[in-house]
Amino acid sequence: MSLTTALLVAAVIAAPVVGQTPPIFNPGAPGQGSRVVSAAEAVELSRTGYVDADVRFMQHMIVHHTQAVEMVALLESRGASPLVRRLGERIGQSQAAEMALMQEWLGSRALPTAAADPHAGHAGHMAMGADAPLMPGMLTPAQMTALAAASGPEFDRLFLQGMIQHHQGALDMVDALLDDPQAGEDPTISDFATSVNADQSAEILRMQSILSEL
């Protein structure tokens, strides 16, 4: 096809808001009336905030994801199955992308990326022995040592079992976040939590299916 009539116009056709504009209504709950607000109030209503639980969630998830990336790093030299390797690489990439998002969310708010209280916020894991995981689902130091020592099909099996446990922990962390009625109102955090839920649930299913065929 020919687009010979392409026409370049560098004009401003922005119609300015002239004269009277109608009132801005802010409705009440169903059955209630609406109130009239100013333009400044209307804009203000679009803003959202965050609470401490949101900040802790982001900080803790970075710690959590760091371990997944460490686990994937072991795959190259120790894994046997190309299928497990490809899956692991994909998990590593998506966890790294998510870590960048979390770091940026915290960084743009001048919040530290490291949690001051890496063990806080998950009552089920409060009994901290020498071999306690940092976050729900994270592999304990002993589990990580066992993984790093294994190779071949045994590594693949431990990797999949460990990553399923690890992902399940992330789902639990999202669950705990959404259990807090004050948390998860920032759209970036709630979208991110949705993403973790959806992607890691799907990856768990895939890992379970690969594990059953090893």
Binding site: L3, T5, A6, L7, L8, V9, A10, A11, V12, I13, A14, A15, P16, V17, T21, I24, V37, S38, A39, A40, E41, A42, V43
Partner: peptide, 24 residues
Amino acid sequence: RDAGQAASGLTLEYSVAPAPGFFD
């Protein structure tokens, strides 16, 4: 509000800025 424009087979008739209370 003043980006360059290109068109083929279409004419821009009106361009309306965001309503008060819906832009910052």
